[in-house]
Amino acid sequence: MEQYTLATQLVQYLIAGLTIGSIYAMVAIGFNIIYNVTEIINFAQGEFVMLGGLIMATLCHWLGVPFFLVLPLAMLAVTGIGVMLDRLAIRPVRQPTVMTLIMATIAASILLKGAAMLLWGKDPYDVAAFSGRVPIMFLGASIQPQNLWVMGILGVVVAVLTHFFGNTIVGKAMIACADNPSAARLVGINVRRMVLLSFALSAGIGALAGIVITPLSLMDYDRGAMLAVKGFGALILGGLGSFPGAVLGGLLLGGIESFGAGLVSSAYKDVFALVFLLLVLFIKPSGLLRSGAVAKMKRF
């Protein structure tokens, strides 16, 4: 075997970290969209990712057409599940407090996981890589085309959302709900519709994350919770409610895990990421990219 230099290894760690970090970031963005409108953390977000991957795998198997035709279908299916989640678990709750609504999402996540186990069984599923599995060599490190897809899709999601929240009426209305729901209602915004939309949107983004990671890591019914926890960490690290924060938080967590595993100890890689998160919180209680004033809680 030829010499495998430290520099090459570092590049390899960076790529691995950015890839998994992009997934965490997408989960965190999904959390953010719902949080911004409702103040709740949707603990079923990880199940959206899992469902995205599994539905994609099944549709690819049934239809046998190229991935870019199946992808919108799979996203649409999960978006529908997101809408159902709002209709059947969030909206029926009487006296909605943040605590009861979060509990409703936890119950829903258990339900979705159980349903997925019944429908797909316990075996993992695979989706063909979008553009083959021939690695690209870069500074001696090898990159799967799918790694680039993952990072690229994160870029696309960020660009589209920036445009949506900055330049469209609906997007701005959603932001208004986040700032002050009663005021938003007064100016004629249908807050309920915005909540519904936020669930649909974040389900779609969750599904996309699942679809794009499955060719690399496979997908099974039991993956959702772990991804939700990591995404939640990324979200808090970057600062609740902040989209740039979600991206930064995700990439940082992914990077720390990867470099920690490679350079220090793979057994304690999650500990490094979490200790870093705790230290950041102790120094800056509202996350990296959020100021204290904005982060103050209205209710909990």
């Binding site: 290894q9 390899q12 760690y13 790529i15 890839t19 772990m226 595993a261 490679g262 999650d270």
Partner: peptide, 22 residues
């Protein structure tokens, strides 16, 4: 002697280190 979580999605870091040790 590398370890990873039973639900991990990527083992590139561990394998990169292993590759370096030849």
């Amino acid at each position: 002697d590398e370890k990873y979580g039973p639900k991990d999605t990527d083992l590139t870091a561990q394998l990169t280190k292993i590759k370096g040790l030849n």
